[in-house]
Amino acid sequence: MKIAVFPGSFDPFTLAHQDLVERALPLFDKIYIAIGVNSAKQGLLTVGDKLATIQAVFKDKPTIEVVSFEGLTINFCNTVGANFLIRGLRNTADFEFENSIAQNNLILAPHIETYFLMSRSGLAHISSTIVRDVWKNKGSIVNMVPAVINDFLRNKDPL
């Protein structure tokens, strides 16, 4: 089986994230959307909220599993038997950052290959950071996040 992990903080999960996962579906038998947990960071959403909302986005996709993990991503990959990582690239700055991580991951776990997918035109400008900023300032995020995420955040008070 070809098993991939799409790791991230997903705070919140965006339309760009969703697009990457959907485009990766034909390439893999199973994809884990793996929410990295950093107990030292306070995010917009709790891990439970992220799990519930992302699971709702992919409720009809049995080959996608949404989970959380702590520690090194490659250790999580080993735990679930994944030999592939999926990472999205919006621009050359993302490439430089992601390439460094991928090279270090290859040193630590040569059997895990990173696949980079370029963001589609019209989605490359979307980041979780921008979504949080627009939402906190009471702007519309309807064109930046899946409907499930928008509905959830509409009922949450900005910090």
Results as ranks from 00 to 15, higher is better:
35 I>K: 03
80 V>K: 07
80 V>W: 10
14 T>R: 05
76 F>P: 04
89 L>Y: 09
153 L>C: 06
78 N>L: 12
1 M>I: 05
82 A>Y: 09
77 C>T: 11
39 S>Y: 09
66 V>W: 04
147 A>P: 04
105 N>P: 10
5 V>M: 05
30 K>H: 15
103 Q>L: 14
55 Q>A: 13
64 I>N: 08
154 R>S: 15
38 N>W: 08
141 I>K: 01
3 I>Y: 02
128 S>P: 01
51 L>I: 14
26 P>D: 12
99 N>P: 00
4 A>H: 10
56 A>H: 03
22 E>K: 12
29 D>F: 00
122 G>E: 07
30 K>Y: 03
1 M>K: 08
80 V>S: 09
55 Q>M: 03
25 L>V: 15
112 I>D: 03
87 R>I: 12
126 I>S: 08
93 A>I: 08
63 T>V: 01
17 H>Y: 11
63 T>W: 01
87 R>H: 13
9 S>V: 12
151 D>I: 04
146 P>S: 04
7 P>K: 05
67 V>I: 15
31 I>M: 02
42 Q>N: 11
62 P>L: 06
104 N>D: 00
126 I>E: 06
108 L>A: 14
62 P>R: 06
81 G>A: 07
102 A>T: 12
152 F>Q: 00
1 M>Y: 03
59 K>N: 11
59 K>E: 14
114 T>M: 05
153 L>F: 12
35 I>V: 12
96 E>G: 00
103 Q>E: 11
128 S>W: 02
28 F>I: 06
36 G>K: 04
40 A>Q: 15
130 I>C: 02
31 I>E: 06
145 V>M: 08
49 D>T: 03
107 I>Q: 11
126 I>W: 03
25 L>K: 13
133 D>Y: 12
27 L>H: 11
141 I>N: 01
106 L>N: 14
63 T>L: 04
51 L>M: 06
15 L>V: 07
138 K>T: 11
53 T>L: 10
132 R>A: 08
84 F>M: 02
57 V>A: 10
152 F>S: 04
66 V>A: 07
53 T>P: 00
154 R>N: 14
17 H>N: 05
150 N>H: 13
118 M>T: 10
105 N>K: 10
149 I>H: 04
54 I>F: 05
155 N>E: 15
99 N>F: 14
60 D>W: 01
52 A>W: 00
17 H>T: 11
134 V>T: 12
3 I>W: 00
159 L>Y: 13
72 L>W: 07
85 L>W: 02
31 I>A: 03
53 T>D: 02
124 A>M: 13
12 P>V: 08
142 V>F: 06
107 I>R: 12
60 D>Y: 03
138 K>D: 15
60 D>P: 01
132 R>P: 08
68 S>P: 10
137 N>D: 00
113 E>A: 07
92 T>W: 01
54 I>D: 06
154 R>T: 15
132 R>F: 09
5 V>F: 12
34 A>W: 09
58 F>L: 07
124 A>W: 14
9 S>K: 11
56 A>F: 00
94 D>C: 03
